[in-house]
Design a protein around this nucleic acid. Structure first.
Length: 347
RNA sequence: GUGGGUAUAGUUCAGUGGCAGAACGCCAGACUGUGGCUCUGGAUGUCGUGGGUUCGACCCCCACUACCCACC
């Protein structure tokens, strides 16, 4: 799932996302609440209509921003009070408030309000954080059940509602993760996310936590690992049984000149591409690789042209989406043997 | 032609009689539920040329050269 924090997958217009085959993209509660405001978006007919995106949308609850903007916030049992990174104004985000905002935004899939446990966290801290996340999940669910039919725009009066997904925390402790998953299962969500990963832990830990948590989460429900990863990582997690993943890496790295290719990572800024007439990835069939040279992309980046971010992002998203298409195809064929043979991208 | 000024990194410029500096640019690396085209590192060089003074000169003195300004 490409990430479009502020109602935009940075640098890529919606029609191009459709051409790339993106079936779902993310929006972010925290950012859209601060600007332009969820009431405004509700008034504009919801996030789909506001941003002209007819395919699926998922909004993150704001839990991660509480983590990443940590110097601006204070966490209590009630929720999180924080200062806006835009203008310094004070706000309180609670599970109820997060769900209220996400209902107003109207994404197809919305997320429970959680606390993304920092790394490293000792066992006591991880347990406390996990227990609060479970309590917040219950509050998220309760609020959602009470208000899920408060749909503000007519075409949604079909009896269908948004899907609220619970988030597993528990730090790097497999038993805490399993306990968290079991307790969330009692709340009966339509899908479950594994959060709090890729926060600085070694990759073996990430794998271990995903594997042990997946043992508890039912295959029949959507299983979502949040915030990962490199192309080889997401292919691997998919093979392990993960259904959904999101990551800013393809888009952010693209804007910083890093391309993901069938030959590994390519820093298009490098002077060795200055006169290279080859496409970024000779094996890629995306619009960028079929039309532009490495030399041109390097020039655009060095010249600070906005088109650099656009083209690099389009390619990276194509590479990611192709990777997942190949996984889905392999699953249909029942043969995943070739999926993990691609390049390794971790630095 | 006369008078004045300037000359230090690729560029614009600081600088001190005792280890050669900044910004930008350049080169390389990073980026994992996106505040921030961001962050981290690295390389720069006959201090215009030739003499002189000095233990020691990028710095002080002389000449030359180039460029800039004013006047003629």
């Amino acid at each position: 799932m490409p990430v479009g924090t502020a109602g935009s997958v940075k640098a890529v217009p919606q029609d191009v996302l459709e051409e790339l085959g993106a079936q779902i993209i993310l929006g972010n509660t925290y950012h859209l609440y601060l600007r332009p405001g969820h009431e405004l978006i509700r008034g504009m007919g919801g996030l789909h209509r506001f941003m002209s995106w007819e395919r699926a949308l998922l909004t993150d609850s704001g839990g991660f921003q509480v983590f990443s903007l940590s110097d601006l916030r204070k966490v209590t049992e009630d929720g999180v009070s924080f200062r806006s990174h835009l203008d310094g104004s004070s706000h309180l985000l609670t599970p109820e408030r997060s769900i209220e905002i996400q209902i107003a935004l109207g994404a197809d899939i919305i997320m429970a309000f959680d606390e993304c446990t920092e790394f490293p966290a000792d066992r006591n801290r991880a347990r406390e954080s996990m227990e609060m996340t479970v309590r917040w999940a219950k509050r998220s669910k309760d609020y959602f059940e009470a208000h899920k039919n408060d749909v503000p725009w007519p075409e949604n009066e079909t009896g269908r509602t948004q899907a609220l997904i619970g988030i597993v925390q528990g730090g790097m402790y497999p038993d805490l993760r399993r306990e968290c998953a079991e307790r969330l299962l009692e709340l009966d969500f339509p899908g479950y996310a594994i959060g709090g990963l890729s926060v600085g832990e070694p990759r073996e830990k990430t794998l271990e936590i995903i594997a042990s948590t997946l043992e508890v989460l039912p295959k029949e429900k959507a299983r979502y690992v949040m915030g990962v990863g490199y192309p080889d990582e997401i292919a691997r997690y998919a093979v392990m049984g993960v259904d959904m993943m999101d990551c800013v890496l393809p888009t952010r790295a693209a804007r910083h000149g890093l391309l993901f290719t069938s030959e590994g990572r390519m820093n298009i800024k490098n002077v060795r591409y200055a006169q290279d007439q080859n496409p970024p990835d000779p094996k890629c069939r995306c619009k960028v690789c079929s039309r532009y040279s490495r030399a041109y992309l390097r020039h655009l980046y060095v010249a600070g042209e906005a088109l650099a971010g656009v083209l690099n992002t389009v390619h990276n998203l194509a590479y990611y989406l192709d990777t997942m298409r190949a996984v889905r195809h392999a699953i249909k064929l029942g043969d995943l043997s070739g999926i993990l043979s691609g390049p390794v991208f971790m630095a």
